[in-house]
């Protein structure tokens, strides 16, 4: 098994890299790692850990301090730190930039840390540096319906005039059906809802590129009564604002 530090991703298999990461963290915390600690941390049997350790030993990444106390070789430490850096960077990316929940961000990072090439990592670091000098971009992304997180108010203050997908763009081309009036028609461009609401809208046939007619509204303007694929549907303002449409010019 060869570890490369060039532009290619590591040739070591994913589980082995995960073990290395675990051992590194355990050593940082306790000064050593034991088979049973590793097994517990990774939620596997001790026998499985032993097999992995044998392979790591063959690659000269770990050494046995004493019978069951395991440490990392210099090479092993280097490899572990490399993965951990990727893990932290990716977690930050998913959490801070893309606005995913911390738990999901960590999971994504775990899946991707093994395949991230040095070049990709370098670009990502540069992207973070760029965000540091231009934080309004991140803010605009977080507030734009396209990049919004669940529960966010859609108050894009920093949209670019060229951004046609932003529903608050003054151009008539894109908006949510909540701002449509009875008698108007439009084509769905995007559904920004998540979870149960998104699924419900999809199940009802509200898909990108389908036509929606707003037929009437309830007393006081809401709920909205729309027709889509032959069905009549009633939607509240909150739901309607999740359906972005473009109106024929």
């Amino acid at each position: 098994m060869i570890l490369t530090s060039s532009t290619a991703p590591s040739l070591m298999s994913e589980p082995l890299e995960d073990y290395l990461e675990t051992i590194y963290l355990l050593v940082q915390e306790h000064g050593f790692a034991r088979v049973k600690d590793i097994a517990k941390a990774r939620d596997v049997k001790a026998a499985t850990v032993s097999i992995a350790l044998r392979k790591l030993d063959e690659a000269r990444l770990v050494n046995y301090v004493r019978r069951e106390y395991i440490g990392l070789t210099t090479k092993g430490e280097e490899a572990a730190r490399r993965i951990l850096t990727r893990h932290r960077l990716l977690t930050r990316f998913f959490e801070e930039v893309l606005g995913m929940p911390a738990h999901a961000a960590g999971e994504q990072a775990c899946a991707m840390e093994h395949v991230l090439t040095d070049e990709a990592m370098d670009r990502m670091v540069r992207f973070f540096e760029f965000l540091g000098t231009c934080p309004s971009v991140l803010k605009a992304f977080g507030q734009c319906p396209v990049g919004a997180r669940p529960g966010d108010e859609h108050s894009c203050g920093a949209y670019s005039p060229e951004c046609a997908r932003c529903s608050l763009n003054p151009k008539e081309s894109s908006m949510s059906i909540a701002s449509m009036k009875p008698g108007q028609s439009a084509i769905v461009t995007q559904i920004t809802a998540t979870g149960a609401l998104r699924q419900r809208l999809l199940d009802m046939g509200i898909l990108p590129e389908t036509a929606i007619d707003v037929e009437r509204s309830g007393p006081g303007g809401h709920p909205l009564w729309i027709r889509c694929q032959g069905a009549r549907l009633a939607l509240r303002r909150a739901e309607a604002s999740n359906i972005l449409v473009r109106r024929p010019a």
Binding site: G195, A196, L197, R200, L201, M204, P223, W225, A231, R232, L233, A234, L235, R236, A238, E239
Partner: peptide
């Protein structure tokens, strides 16, 4: 809890 989606079909 979040409101259940009010996406109600109006049958003929």
């Amino acid at each position: 809890g979040e409101d259940a989606p009010f996406v109600m079909e109006l049958p003929p």
